[in-house]
Design a protein around this nucleic acid. Structure first.
Length: 359
DNA sequence: AACGCGTGGAG
DNA sequence: TCTCCAAGCGT
């Protein structure tokens, strides 16, 4: 089984900035564990296309784990802005510092050791130990869950089916070329055994696939239904001082958008409640903008009112701190906050708020 | 064990 | 517009 998939991978492996080709790996070349770890953290619940540019920027800016460990928290959070799941960035730094402090800057190969590190769970530990060190650990991500559920025609809904799917994933993982095998199953899931309309006709595992035989591939894996997302609403204040500085706050470490820069504002409350009370973060002539910001998080929809003011140079804010015009870039904001900024610039060149040079 | 935690693209 | 979902982890 694994031999068939590895042969398919030899001919069809996708190229990625962090990937070592199957040919190079056969020649004994393994990737730098730091780059594999970096890519795997970024790839958690995030598409390859989205990750590529972030990965390149991070590796260029912090080429080694020691460089990253020495970075300023705010610089890492700013570079992560827009990628989402910001706890990953906080744990990225914690993990880099633990590698330097506890492992002398050298990534451990051991699965159990990796598991103890911040931000590294069962999947990522298996991915790093197999891809970076060629150790025979089975990866079980969304792709592999889908491939296993179909290969063995398993109708138990996720997440209850995970242990059973993991047993199959382990049984299939070969002792040789474990890293290529891990990447191969995931490539198969991403390009052929896709969630909708899988390309069974060109699948290297078409013959042994039980779901293909039963005709159930399109309905697998089964999933337990999700709860509907409630709507919340709130207010943000965009205060600009006469010298161009913006009034921003660093959000608390824990919770939504933890550790990220954002606009001061009200709490975000359920739409069944009256509009939340809020006081502007500084004295000024505040005026509500037309339109609103709409944004959907993992578990709720958000509608924001945006209120702006020009603030006097001597203003002392009650919330947040002024960020100098030269230090501010909307690309350093999480997307929902950048949308509020975009609303302010409505009608101006949309390019203005994309990642790039400072305004 | 179930929930909190982002975002953008596809259909 | 709306739902799904993408190389999951922490609590």
């Amino acid at each position: 089984m694994s031999v068939i998939l590895l042969a398919w991978y030899d001919a069809n492996a996708r190229e990625m900035p962090w990937r070592t080709s199957p040919q190079a790996r056969k020649d004994g070349v393994l990737p730098d564990p730091y780059t594999i770890w970096m890519s795997e953290i970024m790839l958690q619940q995030t598409t390859v296309v989205t990750v590529k540019d972030y990965f390149t920027r991070f590796i260029n800016r912090w080429p080694t784990v020691r460089d990253l460990a020495a970075a300023q928290d705010a610089d890492v959070m700013a570079e992560w802005a827009g990628l989402g799941y910001y706890a990953r960035a906080r744990n990225l730094l914690k993990c880099a510092r633990a590698i330097v402090e506890e492992y002398d800057g050298v990534f451990p190969a051991d699965h159990a050791a990796l598991l103890t590190l911040p931000g590294i769970g069962p999947y990522t530990a298996a991915a790093v130990s197999s891809i970076a060190f060629d150790l025979p650990h089975a990866v079980l991500d969304g792709n592999v869950e889908r491939v296993m559920a179909r290969l063995y025609d398993i109708h138990t809904p996720l997440p209850a089916a995970k242990p059973e799917l993991m047993e199959h994933a382990k049984a299939l993982t070969p002792q040789q070329r474990s890293g290529d095998y891990a990447q191969a199953v995931m490539d198969l899931g991403a390009t052929i055994c896709t969630p909708k309309s899988p390309a069974c006709g060109i699948c290297p595992w078409r013959d042994p696939c039980a779901a293909r035989a039963a005709g159930t591939m399109a309905e697998l894996p089964k999933k337990t239904p999700k709860k509907p997302k409630p709507i919340r609403h709130g207010t943000v204040y965009l205060g600009r001082r006469t010298d161009g500085a913006w009034l921003l706050e660093t959000r608390p470490e824990k919770g939504l958008l933890g550790g990220m820069l954002g606009w001061p504002g009200s709490d975000w409350v359920d739409s069944s409640l009256p509009h939340p009370d809020s006081t502007p973060p500084a004295k000024g002539d505040w005026e509500e903008l037309e339109g609103e910001v709409r944004h959907t998080f993992t578990h709720f929809h958000l509608i924001l009112r945006v209120i702006t003011a020009d603030l006097a140079s001597e203003t002392t804010p009650t919330q947040g701190e002024f960020v100098a015009k030269s230090d501010f870039s909307p690309s350093n904001l999480p997307t929902v906050m950048r949308k509020a900024f975009d609303l302010h610039y409505q009608g101006v060149s949309p390019q203005m708020t994309q990642r790039g040079p400072l305004l």
